[in-house]
Design a protein around this nucleic acid. Structure first.
Lengths: 228, 228
DNA sequence: TAAATGGTTCGACTATGGTCGAACTATGAA
DNA sequence: TTCATAGTTCGACCATAGTCGAACCATTTA
């Protein structure tokens, strides 16, 4: 009965409501400070401090002390993927909990998932990149093709600056609302940033919703629909 | 702070050691009876009964009453994927817990993951199918190509019988020991069954280890290495 | 320096929930 | 029928761990 790694340890770590709220908040990809997380989790700062220590020891989060602030972020984008997958299960198995309120609607349409675009618009972007041959498969890993690199560069992104980090450029991430993949990895991150730069979209700092302006959304649609 | 589905509920469900043991045991893909699971989990039958009720209500397992026995299995292969992903995190984050014992070695080499082959041999099989063009990508989903179908049929598998189920034929599943994908879905399942039929391999009923016979392993190697 | 803000540590309280013994139901075998 | 095995339910016990108040560091600002 001791097969494989100790799955209960980290599942229990995620299983506490306060910690789950913290992790969900961190799915925005932004590094949040302890007090912000306390507000998000609905518990006091002392309690949060204890939770953060546990999450860190469990390898789920990373903390960076800067001045008198403690900036916390998810340890890894694998952690984000696991959380997203858990949300998928919860959305399906959680019986009646799927009452789609108005904000829920917005979350389904476009939200941020560990710094990249998720939701309906995220999966549409991903699909389009696949169909156009911008993204390909090399064995198991996702790669950016030559034409894809050209397109991305043309979109105003400095690819060479990205390659410096050792984090994978592309990755797919299962979307809990769409139940399909969207683009993750550093490329996914920089694309969302570019959308913000262009004024197409802005993130709601409180929720994980990504708001597109009217012109931004139409431009995005044009990008995604293409001619082919 | 109520964004998305309730992730803590099911994470807590997985987070109890006894329940985690139960779920891990069910990763073998076989439907196990309550007493077997009780032995596996290391708790009494009464306790197990309670756990099983919770797991079922949480949508993680399915139960089938047959005579005076209760056969329990994982609800979904999405559940299996989440568990496998959690194992990946635990294997990485779980600091010192990665002392590779001898049985652990066998688990890494070949094990069963919800009825399909996982571990080193599973990923090798998957990679080979990709390289040979047996498996392809259609957008986000994994598909069996024409040549792949021909090969599988030639291997003695009745594909038409498989298509009847509405479960996806192919699916990739992240391997916690190899940290790469292996083949899941009904095709993955039937392939493992075929290996057993051919006498190449047999499952250890107690652990999740898949034992290959010497000739079986060499034949598998030939299958995977090929000429190309 | 003092005051204020951000975090941590300690201790005590409390409750949720896992655990088992015992009694009970249900199915199958003799 | 009686006996045995498989599961469930109930009740009581108990431990783990989440929670906050209070006091305590640390850093920045006045």
């Amino acid at each position: 009965m001791k097969d494989g790694p100790d799955i209960a340890r980290i599942a229990a770590l995620i299983g506490d409501p306060a910690r789950a709220n913290i992790l969900t908040a961190l799915m925005s990809g932004k590094a949040l400070t302890a007090t912000e997380l306390a507000r998000e989790a609905g518990v006091t700062l002392q309690t949060t401090s204890g939770h953060l220590a546990k999450l860190e020891r469990g390898g789920l989060t990373r903390a960076l002390k800067q001045g008198r602030h403690k900036y916390v972020s998810l340890a890894d984008d694998e952690v984000a993927r696991v959380l997203e997958a858990l949300m998928g299960l919860a959305a399906k198995a959680g019986h009646l909990r799927t009452r789609t309120g108005p904000r829920d609607e917005a979350l389904r349409k476009a939200r941020v998932c560990y710094n990249h675009l998720a939701g309906d618009m995220g999966t549409r972007l991903y699909d389009r990149f696949i169909v156009r041959g911008y993204l390909g498969r090399d064995g198991e890993s996702l790669i950016l093709t030559g034409s894809g690199a050209a397109f991305v560069r043309d979109f105003g992104i400095d690819l060479d600056a990205l390659d410096k980090g050792r984090a994978p450029l592309c990755r797919d991430c299962l979307d809990w609302s769409e139940r399909r993949a969207h683009l993750a990895g550093s490329l996914g991150r920089v694309l969302l940033t570019r959308f913000e730069e262009l004024g197409w979209a802005r993130r709601d700092p409180a929720t994980r919703v990504v708001h597109f302006s009217q012109s931004g959304e139409s431009q995005f649609d044009r990008l995604v629909q293409g001619v082919t």
